[in-house]
């Protein structure tokens, strides 16, 4: 029994695969959970749609609702042209959602509680925006940073602000998800320690332990909400940022 609330975030190396000039690539618990997420998402969606029934059952309804939910989100923020990004946003949403929810199960590992993972996803989004924006609009993409209808003397300041706001997007996008997952899991673990600690203190402790125990129940419900909400926020912001790649003019 460990009393370390950050122990749950540790990366366990199961097999060292290759070492490229000092950079070690290993097969880790994080990798296992990433593949588990992919498997869960894919098998759920294929299992749910196995009947391809006209009147959907429960599982198929969930799959269709997820599809239409993300499709509507992308269409609302990025228009019909934005539907090229629909599989991307859908993958991001399901990956983050399942990672967050799987992480709530005790003894599991939360992939999204690692800054490098959320940062990689956020940079992937911003990278897509930049690359697609330049490919589609060329230098016209830079109009994203130049608001129209602004007095000339204000323009330099506004361009600076726009650039800063654009550059801070991946930071806020990744930190938001990472910090939410990290803080939630630490809080859960801390209350779990109190249950164990108080319960080991005898009969009085057992009664005392019920208090943090109910706290854990409440926190788990809250964390479930946070898990879904953060996946939603990640997907919404992604569609809004992708809209900039499609319609760079203000």
């Amino acid at each position: 029994m460990t009393v370390d609330p950050i122990h749950q975030f540790q990366i366990k190396r199961f097999a060292d695969l290759l070492n490229v000039s000092g950079v070690q690539f290993s097969f880790t618990n994080s990798a296992i959970f990433m593949f588990a997420i992919v498997a869960i998402v894919f098998f759920f969606l294929t299992y749910a749609t196995r009947g391809r029934t006209l009147v959907p059952g429960r599982a198929q309804s969930v799959a269709e609702m997820g599809y239409e939910f993300i499709a509507k989100m992308v269409r609302d923020s990025a228009g019909n042209e934005g539907m090229v990004f629909f599989p991307f946003v859908f993958s991001l949403f399901t990956f983050v959602l399942v990672a967050n929810i799987v992480g709530l199960i005790p003894y599991t590992f939360t992939v999204t509680a690692h800054l490098i993972v959320t940062a990689a996803l956020a940079l992937l989004v911003i990278g897509t925006v930049i690359v697609y924006g330049f490919l589609k609009h060329g230098s016209h993409f830079l109009h994203l940073f130049v608001p129209s209808g602004v007095p000339a003397f204000l323009l330099p300041f506004l361009v600076v602000i726009e650039v800063i706001s654009f550059l801070s997007r991946p930071i806020s996008l990744s930190l938001r998800l990472f910090a939410n997952m990290l803080a939630g899991h630490i809080a859960l673990k801390v209350f779990a320690f109190f249950v164990v600690g108080l319960a080991s203190a005898g009969v009085v402790g057992w009664f005392g332990a019920t208090l943090p125990f109910f706290m854990i129940v409440a926190l788990t419900a809250l964390e479930l909400l946070v898990a879904v909400l953060q996946a939603y926020v990640f997907a919404v912001l992604t569609s809004i940022y992708l809209n900039d790649a499609i319609h760079p003019g203000h």
Binding site: F25, F27, S30, V41, T46, P87, F90, H114, I116
Partner: peptide, 25 residues
Amino acid sequence: TFPSQLLWLAISFGLLYLLMSRVAL
């Protein structure tokens, strides 16, 4: 741990994207 995580994230997320865009969606 970053290189390993990035490697497996790239592989798994890439796989997820392929499966979603080609099969499931």
